[in-house]
Structure formats: C-alpha cells, structure tokens
Amino acid sequence: MPVSAAIINIIKQKLNVDIKAASPVSGGDINEVYRLQSTGGDYIIKINNRYKFPEMFKREAEGLAAIKATKAIGVPDIIFDEEVGDESFLLMEWIDAGQSTAYASQALGQQLAQMHRTATPRFGFATDNYMGSLHQSNKQHDSWANFFIAERLLPMVKMAVDNHELSQTDMRRFEDLYNKLPDLFIEEAPSLIHGDLWGGNYLISSDGKPYLIDPAVSYSNREFDIAMTTLFGGFDNAFYEAYNAEFPLQPGWQKRLKLWNLYPLLVHVNLFGGSYAQQVRQNLAAFV
C-alpha cells in the first residue's frame, strides 16, 4: 500500500473502517494524492512533508470551509487533517467526476458569482495560506490597491529579482505600476475568492454539480478569480455569460485581466522560471 501504515491506522481508528485499496490520482504536483477505497466508502487523501509545507492542509481546509459556508457552490467535505511522523495529510470525501456540459458550465459561473457576493469590510483573510507551494500573505488592508501591491506583487517581484528571473529594470516598472494602480480599476467591497481558479481547480461531478478544489482564498477583488480563469483555458463562454447575468462585472473588466494575472504569472516565474518572465513583462507593458 503506497500510503504509510501510520496514516492508514489513524484513518481506521478514527472512522472505524478498513482500507481496501489506495490508487494514485493524477494532478498533484506538490502532494501525493490517492483515492482510498474503504468499507465505509471512498475518500481522497493528500499527503506531503509537514516540515516542507507547514500547515498547508490546515490552510486548505480553512479555505474549503469558508467556501462551503457561503452555501453558494460545492466543495468536497473535509473529513479531517492530521500530522504523523514527517507527514501531514488531508482526508476528504471522494467525488466521482463526470463530463462538463453547457448546463454545468452555466451552473459554475452562476454559483461562483453567488460566492463572490460574500463580502467583508477589509481585503485579506484571517490567516496566511499557500498559492501553489509558495507562502501567500493575507494581511488585511482597507483598499484593494494596497492589498494587491503589499501582499501579492511586492513579495513575488522581490523573490523573482532575488532569483535573477526579473531585473532591476523590471522592478522599477512595477514601482511605476504601483503608483498608477488605484486609478486602473473600480473599487468594490472585498469578495470571497477562490484565489487559484484555473481549469484544474474545479470539477464537475457525475451528476453535473460544480465543485471547487485546492483554494487559496482571500477577500479580494472578484475580478482576480475571473482573470485567472483566462490563463490556461478550461472555461467557456457559457461560464462567463452566466457569471455576468448573476453578478455583472464592472465595465472594462476585460482590459484588467492582464493586470490581475500579473500575480499568478509571477508565482509561475518563481516556481518554474522560463518563459513566464516574458509573459509578466508583456502584461506589465499594457499598463506602464
């Protein structure tokens, strides 16, 4: 069995089940992911090194719980998370995936918009979390511009310059952007966002219900989620039409997609390097 005996024993004791099989699940770059078949049903388990990614699964569980609390869109039920030896793990309900349909895509757009209606007075979140494998700071701010600069762009630009992925010239161009940023968008109340909404972080169940997975939540400008959906594909016109019908985006939102995508692109620069630095420069050039 690929899952350690210590983890299996904890699950058996807590849930009073026997584990019959553990099958690897594709798509986990940071964690080992398995489908567990048990006498009590199927689960999905994510496992990683507790010292390399401290409290990653606690933060993920908090994000899923925050989304679930909106009662707007589905997330997998959290069974429990725990640490044992050098490992930490998160156990959740297994969801049988189905095929995406026009109806499911519309439901995803509509329900995401309903989730985005969950607002709070300040930008940020109660705890920091992770964006991929990188630490994500969520210190609270009164304005989106201040939050986006201080907690999103500044740490990633510094890391990229320190790693020689971006230059001092690039950093000065970002400084020009910081001065312009408050005038580039229309301020709204902070919305609860997924925070890492690319095509691999939602699924459609076998009965056609949308689920969000692997969140990096915060209370932010909701256009950030919409921008991320455009980076790597996986979302069709029905999704955007349903979203706008439920909670119309501010005028000019399409022009700001490259602005908000600076952050996930910077994350990719710091994780993978390569051509992502050039994409950052291209997006930046649209605004400074």
Rank of each mutant, 00 (worst) to 15 (best):
L231D: 07
E188V: 09
Q168I: 10
L266Q: 13
L181C: 11
D207F: 13
L249M: 11
F174L: 05
R256H: 00
A150E: 15
S220L: 09
A245V: 00
F185T: 04
G233E: 13
A238V: 15
N237Y: 06
P264R: 06
F232A: 11
E241W: 06
F232W: 08
H194I: 10
Y202A: 07
G199F: 04
D162H: 04
L177P: 02
T169N: 12
Y263T: 10
Y243V: 03
R222E: 08
E151S: 07
R152F: 10
N163F: 08
E151K: 00
P251S: 08
F247N: 12
F185G: 03
R256D: 04
W198K: 07
P190S: 09
E223V: 01
M171Q: 15
H164D: 13
G252E: 02
Q254W: 05
D183Y: 08
T229I: 09
D183K: 06
D214Y: 13
D207Q: 15
A150D: 15
D176Y: 03
I213Y: 11
P251K: 04
L266S: 11
A227K: 00
L266H: 09
L181F: 07
K180Y: 03
G200M: 10
I186N: 06
A216H: 03
E188D: 10
D170S: 08
I186A: 12
P264K: 05
Y211E: 09
T229V: 13
S205Q: 12
K180P: 08
R256S: 08
I226N: 01
N221F: 06
Y211I: 08
L231A: 06
L266M: 12
K258T: 01
E241Q: 15
A160F: 03
W198C: 08
M171C: 14
P210G: 06
K180F: 00
Y243G: 00
T169M: 04
E187F: 02
S220F: 14
N179C: 12
A245L: 09
D196G: 04
E246L: 02
F235W: 06
G195K: 03
S205K: 12
N244P: 01
I193A: 05
H194T: 09
D214H: 11
G195Q: 07
L154V: 14
A242P: 00
H164I: 01
A238E: 15
N244D: 14
N163E: 14
N201Q: 09
F185M: 00
A242N: 02
L231T: 07
H164L: 09
Y243M: 03
Y243N: 02
L249N: 04
P251H: 13
R256T: 01
W198R: 09
W260Q: 02
N221L: 04
D236H: 06
A150H: 14
G200Y: 12
P190L: 10
L192Q: 02
P215Y: 14
G208E: 05
P264T: 12
P190D: 10
S220P: 01
G199R: 04
F224D: 07
P155D: 13
A245D: 14
L181D: 13
L265P: 05
S218P: 00
Q250K: 14
G208Q: 05
Y219V: 08
L192P: 00
F224V: 11
G252C: 03
L257K: 13
A216P: 00
R222H: 02
E175H: 10
Q168H: 06
L177T: 05
Y202G: 07
E223C: 01
T229S: 05
N244Q: 11
